[in-house]
Amino acid sequence: MNDDRPLLSVTDAGHRYGDRFGCRNVSFDLWPGEVLAVVGESGSGKSTLLGILSQRLRVDEGSIRYRTARADGSGGREGSAEELLELSTLSEREVRRLWRTDWGFVHQNAAEGLRMHVSAGGNVGEPLMANGWRHYGQIRAKAEEWLRRVEIPAERIDDTPATFSGGMRQRVQIARNLVFEPRLVFMDEPTSGLDVSVQARLLDLIRSLVAELGLAVVIVTHDLAVARLISHRTLVMKDGAVIESGLTDRVLDDPQAAYTQLLVSSILQG
């Protein structure tokens, strides 16, 4: 938090589907330890934004820069050689290195983020093995530790996610994403599709892990209650544009844009 440079810096970013923009003129900076919620209804462009941030979609306009050291630099993660690099200029090898070491992605559907027929331990251990861990005992111990942190009983370590409930699958997915302690995690509606009680438990878990690890998170959600519970800042999107942004409780308590007022007034009071 005390670094004056953001971890992720987005300037006027946009993506076009044919002659129509999925999202456009999106700008924000994200610092370590910050959770940014992107809220909006279906078709608002929030998923397109997540797509370009995570390089699943091309950036047609503007820029997305990430703070890292050049591959040839000796700096490494903590090195002084870190600079804000334009993601589109990085090689595929470099981007994949970032996915292995610095970034995570929690999918709405756990089947997209897990190997459903590999054991929970194997799923959580894979990022370690991908980063050169070659000691079975250490890999397993770390996987056990992380399954415990996401509240999966130790005796389930050798069971496959295919045999798990929806909530457990999401927790395994979170463990798999956090085991190598990334700096930036993208989350795409991680709690929707779960029962309400399971949702609350998962949100609480995400919130405490994010705080403990000092992660930066971009979480896409249609649920303002989710944004309220775990995010520091919120971007409200409509028709591909950011129509309001700021401190989450200010956006929700004192919304300025007509659309945000409408969204906020539509929340069911709990």
């Binding site: 595929e92 090898r93 994949r96 292995r100 190997r115 590999v118 054991s119 331990g121 194997g122 251990g125 894979e126 990022p127 370690l128 093995m129 991908a130 980063n131 070659r134 079975y136 890999i139 397993r140 370590i157 050798d158």
Partner: peptide, 18 residues
Amino acid sequence: ALEEYGLMYVKLYEDIAK
């Protein structure tokens, strides 16, 4: 191409676990 062989070890990990 990128010499990413973590996956291969997942297979071996699964064997030992099982």
